[in-house]
Amino acid sequence: MSASAAAGGTVGHIRHVLSENPVTGLSFGLFGLLVLTAILGPSLVPYDPLASSDAALAAPSAKHWFGTDNLGRDVFARVVVATRLDLGMAFAAVALVFVTGTLAGVAAGFLGGWTDRIVGRVTDTIMAFPLFVLAMGLVAALGNTIANVIYATAIINFPIYARVARTEANIRREAGYIEAARLAGASTLAVMLFEVLPNVLPIMMVQVSLTMGYAILNTAGLSFIGLGIRPPTAEWGIMVAEGAGYIVSGEWWIALFPGLALMLAVFTFNLMGDGLRDIVDPRRRT
């Protein structure tokens, strides 16, 4: 009985958050749309994103909604198909940094001492560089592969996760329930993983949403300058790069639509952050 009541409370709470802030609802809707596009996109588009046609540089029309590029490829198909790759790479990078950064930060904040110093030095070192330049350097040094773009994106986001997790773990170090858990026989590791971490995770979920946007921008940015993904693969960054040269000559659609898709994705994840926090934090429920 109490379990169902609690579940009803959760649904009710989510409904309340959404009704109180329609922007949150909008961002969740857009997020759903993006995910569906990533999953179903390639099987829905009317054209092969890689196939050239005679109609090169055609303006948007009923036949080609977003027009065609210099090789006659359908821009709409390419934008839709690229969703999976862009979101997938950003998601992989964020998942990686979410796990490593959160664990490192929680350990630093909760254990203090040497752990804290080491994690602190690592984050300081990363943050000493302009982050995009660091990502460029890493991909150039490690090799121009998709995996390395993901690693580089994860590394430049590491300080954000480690620092937020460190602060959140540190303020919970003295919490009463930490003492209670130790009285209950929990080892230091158990306290860290089962008492502190669950309290830090909701805050980190908000970070996930915020950094997803930047991660998308970062991976696209790398391919824009020719690192990571290579043509002819459909990817927003490459498409913007390829289309950039045609803006002056009037073929604006080649760069504009992938650019808009990129902007929409970044925008969606940023908006989701606040709504997500309201939903996952149990103390904001009544």
Binding site: A175, G176, Y177, A181, P198, N199
Partner: peptide, 12 residues
Amino acid sequence: FQDAEGSINPRF
């Protein structure tokens, strides 16, 4: 503990 609320993990 004195602070009963603070001594129970809010996630549990």
